[in-house]
Design a protein around this nucleic acid. Sequence first.
DNA 1: TTGTATGCGTTATCAT
DNA 2: ATGATAACGCATACAA
Lengths: 354, 354
Amino acid sequence: MEKNKQVTIRQLSKKLGVSISTISSVLNNRQEERRISPETVKRVQQAAREIGYLPNISARMLRSYSSSSYPITIAVLTSFQAPLPLISSVITTLQRVGNEAEYKDINFNVTVDMFEAGRVKELPGLLDGTRFNAALIANTIPTDDEFLAENVISSPVVFIGRDIPHYSSVKTVAHMTGRQAADILYSSGSRNPVILYSKILTQTTIARIEGFREDAEKLSGNKPVEIVADGFTEKNGYEAMKNFLDSGEKIDGLYTITDSLAVGSYHAVKKKGLKIPDDIAVIGTGDSSVSPYIDPPLSTFTRSQYNLHEEAVRLLFKQLNGKISMPTQVVVPVMPVLRESTRRGSIANFEIDI
Amino acid sequence: MEKNKQVTIRQLSKKLGVSISTISSVLNNRQEERRISPETVKRVQQAAREIGYLPNISARMLRSYSSSSYPITIAVLTSFQAPLPLISSVITTLQRVGNEAEYKDINFNVTVDMFEAGRVKELPGLLDGTRFNAALIANTIPTDDEFLAENVISSPVVFIGRDIPHYSSVKTVAHMTGRQAADILYSSGSRNPVILYSKILTQTTIARIEGFREDAEKLSGNKPVEIVADGFTEKNGYEAMKNFLDSGEKIDGLYTITDSLAVGSYHAVKKKGLKIPDDIAVIGTGDSSVSPYIDPPLSTFTRSQYNLHEEAVRLLFKQLNGKISMPTQVVVPVMPVLRESTRRGSIANFEIDI
DNA sequence: TTGTATGCGTTATCAT
DNA sequence: ATGATAACGCATACAA
């Protein structure tokens, strides 16, 4: 694959028979103070345009931000298969926390690199330290995790939602969440619990599923039925649930691995003429911003995302500050948020959130 | 504000009385092939850790990616007040389109910079070209637009959702969207139309509002009532709508400037015991992924976002390729998507999307 | 009106 | 076992 052949000032200079500094001056609109002849200016500008000259930002930064105060580079690395809001959330958190007094003195810029799930290893600069001073890494799948565990990233790194030996990470107690979900459905009277998840599995989702399997079976005596959706979207949830309901299998409780899947499920359930929570109690995960406002409001678990990202960013900054050096594991608590969608059975009298 | 004083290899070298190249070797784990004494290695590593040495990524890249093929830098610039999904969407689109055969030869990395609405001017490197080779800019407010119109960014730039003189931009026909919304509500029998928007206004939202005002008044004979929410979230929509309904003002049709505001409104409307679309027809904007699945499915306008971002990215790449040089305006069409929430009156028989 | 030289921080090559 | 030096691309002070 031929990547873009970058043209440098020097090559322009040779081509035009004009000195480097003249070119540079023109390209930076210093033509007047440098009193370059209009003719030369034209020639340079035209050549630059024709040839598609693009300055080397690294060189410019090296030159401009010198004097012991250049911005460091923080990378956000995630797979294409990530739930879409993740990047925004992490970046916004980075910028927000970075503005706090405590970290005001960290002058940084943020880059984002994405990889196909299973192919972190192909990310340029991951191991050689040529692309970032520090990184937040999310949405790796086990293949990636293996690779990362076997290799060493020499910059400070925080993993979001997964544990990689020798690195810092921020996680939720995903296994426990799955178990709690099973408990809540059981308390709402569900004896035929079903779990709906995406076929894209990560450490966190696997843990949730396993936790649910264990307690659901222990409590109800039935192995929970598992529905696998194609992805995380509402559409994926709708389609998976519709197929399931059409099959006629028993269900009286539903745990979804994300709130978006629950939203899609709602629609399928209602179209089938079933009522939530009367016929099917539903609990999601993540407390999406829409969850309190759908009909009925969705029981779920706290937006671990928010806290996760916040904790991850803080942990990274602390490592950069030198406040923490050892790999550190942070566990973010996840709390159930009970709303109408599980208001049934012995759990009906619990305090409702909205 | 004291920014981080970066330590360089040279300073470490002076401090330790060891040569620069030795330090570099140790820091890159070349100690064995270079046969540095274990003692020196220790000293260097410790000093680096203590002093918080962070390599200058620009220097490293300059050194490493030389030979006429370094990655160019594409920046995504947006305000903190942007709807959260925007960044993710733009970045994902960048990566996806960048992987297409046509653009495979553009080797780039992505940086994200955020600014407070109204303060683009404070973004480092915006005008001096030290931070990016090309940029996608979104969610500026009029103050920002003014500044940008008066100054010159010398790199290729594409504005998303707004027009800035002398620059390329990708927009929707927002004004038309507003008018169509008014038409649709009117056709659904609404004579007391209401518009709900966020107090944070951009070129696009302003145009939508104006379009709606015009046609709503023309058609219904009544100036539409305007509700102003604090922001774009479902919660903001819920609260604004709840207050409005509590006030007892007339309403039989609602146009919201984003789908998220509509979702929040739904909840307020239902809590008030009113029915959608029977009592209030609702139409949103943006075709959010949840909109087809809420109850009732929400009429809206096509996810202009998606197309917008896609077009913006393509336009930027074309400029980088030299395929386009003049500032270019692209207008992305927006189509109404009619679902249950407006199924009333003469519009009831229109084809329904889901 | 234009060119030469220097240095930003880093790594690799070559000496010692 | 370690140091000196050149070069990456660019912008500027200074020279011509």
